[in-house]
Nucleic acid binder design. Sequence first.
DNA 1: GTAATATTGATATTGAATTTCAATTTGTGA
DNA 2: TCACAAATTGAAATTCAATATCAATATTAC
Lengths: 156, 156
Amino acid sequence: MQLSKATPKSERKKALDEYILKKRLKSTKQRDIIFDEFFNYPGQHVTVEELYEKLKKQNPKIGYATVYRTLKLFKECRLAFERNFGDGRARYEPVKFEGEHHDHLICIGCGRIIEFANLRIEQYSREVAKLNDFEVLNHKLELYGYCSSCTRKRDK
Amino acid sequence: MQLSKATPKSERKKALDEYILKKRLKSTKQRDIIFDEFFNYPGQHVTVEELYEKLKKQNPKIGYATVYRTLKLFKECRLAFERNFGDGRARYEPVKFEGEHHDHLICIGCGRIIEFANLRIEQYSREVAKLNDFEVLNHKLELYGYCSSCTRKRDK
DNA sequence: GTAATATTGATATTGAATTTCAATTTGTGA
DNA sequence: TCACAAATTGAAATTCAATATCAATATTAC
């Protein structure tokens, strides 16, 4: 299922509700709270820990395991993407709409992440997909290396 | 430093030796053994555990920590690259030479992975890196979606 | 409402990654 | 070659994110 470009948050909520219904899971207050917080989170790549800390301020009783499990649920129903930047903790982000994708320069020295836009990659993806008879929903382009600061540090 | 296309193993060894010299580290038997085993490893993405088990057969006294630290060293001097596939264990692979990269179409229906070449991505990487003052060692381009077989299955 | 089932949250457990430290090895300079 | 300083090793301990456990609770279906 491809989310359309104009999909508002309510569409995501609908997708989640549909998934819960289909899988005979249950709607809970916690899932709603985590949903709101996750999709309103200002940072791009939130860890379970970070989201948990933020949630606890409004809702002290929420458990870490619940946040962890709910992000896993969002992942299952393709509302969230899990990333690993090599610092030992998984990071989650909302699945991007068409045209919203951004790619990453990832410094494997200090963990710094630089985002950049990718109109050309979008087009490239479409071509490759067509050649291979593939239906592409999402892509991930990560360039790994060292930022100037880390290269300087090493060369000292 | 970008390894040239024709770089043989001895060039890598030279690069390692240079790094050791520059950083005033020391050449050791263990590092040589691990070097040989790592760059001759048949699989694409070896874990520390796997490499350790393989090494122990020839060299029972070698320690896990040494393998771990040596792979970290290879990473530092840009001879190895660390990947995370989300199974909780880091995997290492020799840094690819220019033009050797391959990218992936990943079917989220059946898990099938199709590799494809990416001359244009190479060039794109170089441009973006230059703009951001980044030293790019490796990249990962993954297109997620459904293969034709899964699409047919869904549309039935 | 009741029963069946899923979820929660606190806590315990797991396991990979990393650190510690005494013993050993290596490079440097006389 | 020798001795000293510094780096490395290997075993074991520690750390920490991810995951599992389980009794109490909440939700859904009937």
